[in-house]
Design a protein around this nucleic acid. Sequence first.
RNA 1: GCCCCCGUAGCCCAAUGGCAGAGGCAAGCCCCUUAAAAGGGCUGUGGUGUGGGUUCGAGUCCCACCGGGGGCACCA
Length: 816
Amino acid sequence: MYDPQALQAKWLPRWEELDTFAGVEDPEDPRPRRYMLDMFPYPSGDLHMGHGEVFAIGDVLARYWFQKGYNVLHPIGWDSFGLPAENAAIRRNLHPAEWTYANIDTQANSFKRYAVSFDWSRRLHTSDPEYYRWNQWLFIRFFERGLAYRKGGLVNWCPVDQTVLANEQVVAGRCERCDAEVVRRELTQWYFKITDYADRLVDDMAQLEGGWPERVLTMQRNWIGRSTGADVEFPIEGRDEPVTVYTTRPDTLYGATFFVVAPDAALAEEIVAPEQREALAAYRAQVAKLSDIERLSTEKEKTGVFLGTYAINPVNGERIPVWAADYVLSDYGHGAIMAVPAHDQRDLDFARKFGLPVRVVVHTGLADPGETGVATPGEGTLVNSGPLDGLAKADAIRKIIEILGERGTGRAAVNFRLRDWLLSRQRFWGTPIPIIHCLDCGEVPVPDDQLPVTLPDMRGEALAPKGISPLASAEEWVNVACPKCSGPAKRDTDTMDTFVDSSWYYLRYCDPDYTDGPFNVERVRKWGPIDQYVGGVEHAVLHLLYSRFFIKVLHDMGMVDFTEPFLRLLNQGQVINQGKAMSKNLGNGVDLGEQIDAYGVDAVRFTMLFAGPPEDDIDWADVSPAASQKFLARALRVMVEAGAASAPGADFATGDLELRKVTHRTIDEVTRLLDSYRYNVALARMMELTTAARRAIDSGPGAADPAVREAAETLAVMLSLVAPYTAEEGWERLGHTPSVAKAGWPVADPALLVQESVTCVVQVAGKVRDRLEVSPDIADAELESLALASEKVQPYLDGAPRKVIVRAPKLVNIVP
RNA sequence: GCCCCCGUAGCCCAAUGGCAGAGGCAAGCCCCUUAAAAGGGCUGUGGUGUGGGUUCGAGUCCCACCGGGGGCACCA
């Protein structure tokens, strides 16, 4: 009788004692190192089905590498700062730490039961002062390098969470966390200068090709949005300084028929003619009322207002009207554009709405945009463009940049969609920003020897969001002496985005108790970068982009010797139920703990991995943990019966040849399948091996045959990756000492992989007409004559064949 | 609207351009059993969403369309 709960009760305490996966930092350790990392969890409650999947996937790989003889780093920690703890604390009149650390304990116990091969000695929590101290230390280093700065401007404000958000945390105008519609607010906030690294963030993706899912790379590329073009200076009537615009199509400069500035930019107010001032003010008010969601709608009609002033086209001296319109963004490029309606759909829509002229300057062979309303952004020959006439796009761009350069009114330029990372938050449960504001000295970093700046003791109602950070009301905490002049000063009361915490936690795992810096540089040199990262695709442009940025900065600081943190990335699918995401509303939730209680840890892990490729979603309604349990019981019986019939150390060479071949073919295939992350197929092969061993026991050479032991031992080791309890029990029943995790990965004997004969298919015109048993190393010519001589083939041949394709030893195709 | 991925048996899924089926679920049948459960075994008529194309040969490569999923969507 297979009793998974009994196996768990038996082995879990034994494993605690054995501590098989404790980290080894012995410099003499000859094993090559590997770093396997799962995205660390947020302690929102107990582990759920999604955790069950990610950690099952990660654990197979970690255990596989361990069995193969690598020194594996496979750590766990908690991303334990964040809003849910704070909201829970307000609701229940607690300190956020109470809720947080209770959940961490729950999750830690669940992880242990789930038998994930973590090195528990490296555990960390980002909400520990020993951890966030180093967030502060890093912040100050960034500040010193000009990479952390404060500026005022329009920011995204989440009215529900009562804090600002980074651009990356706004999805289609809504808060990524709580889905509330964000509003724009004018506020002074802290930023990390990620835009300084925009080029490298794009260029270094070359290192990740093949190791990261293509779609994640695409999403990052889109997010960064690098484009190349030119800056062109347009004089404005009645203004001393020209206004620069950015365009990706400088070749169409002669087609500019009007000029547009962002209505919310200072420039609009500055250049508006007195008689249009009122109109602009009204338009600005109208625009300000729009939500982001309305503003971003592509369905929206173009709106705008004439500013009563004119710009001068620098290449032909033409006078073109200046408008303000909200389809021009104040924070991209220079907040102003030259409008070329013939070759840009947005400009054309605007021109048609307001009766502005359309001039074709690229002959594309398509109908006149002025007539059709369809812009022609494609390639073509330049016309109506003075010196550019007759040129193709690329040449025209080169030429016009040259002309502008000579006159000093333009130059080649690169622009990015990426904005700086807004990192301050008006919430409590995060890392205090280690800056002291002094009236005389300005922004003064807290001296390193005074770190960490710990959070004041606040709980319950005191944490309720008020639109400013709760820390502001902790007066004793806020008021300090300026570290520079000792005068009265105030601490910065914002806390850091928790994505700061997760941008470098994987470095600290290498030596989590290190006290001389955020991480042990030598240890990171040894362990880094991460060989395999496993986690959800929801972080494609959040955590993953921020981490890449951090590593590049740390590289420039000389603290790490690599430029990309994660060499390989695997995005596991979601666990869904009945075709839909699990949710309370739908009432289709499945609880991980309940599944484990019903079927056992091993069966749940097995089911997660067997369901399909790891990146596919698993519909729990389509899979059968009961069937997984049945298989594990069957596998364990094979191991138990083999163990009862023979002793360890048998000479496998004397065993049944047929079974031995199956075993070794399985080793060969499973090894290759695991190397390519095809766990579902690898498990199918293990099931086949189990069936073969079963058959050998029942109707073959019998349980005592050494080949049966060999198969059973192989099975125990392979299953240890997926079903550690079952495998451990089987390993013991086979007469071995725990732990099976240390048994070592089996190696296929090449002599047992060769087949004496292969079935060769003989086709005539693609249809199978005969099968021949041939030697696997038969020569093409011999196989061809054998095939042509076949009696079954003869009737289909009419004289000499036109062509014979031979793919020895498996196929011959005769074309009559 | 643009880009990417995926459509194989009732279901989940396999198949270096070479016999469409490895594994599992469900279903049916058989053995074991007094019986049931447990256990062991047997059973696959879909020709790979549709239509073209390339090839000696296409589930696999190319084109178009249909269906599902995802990303981007005033970034000049």
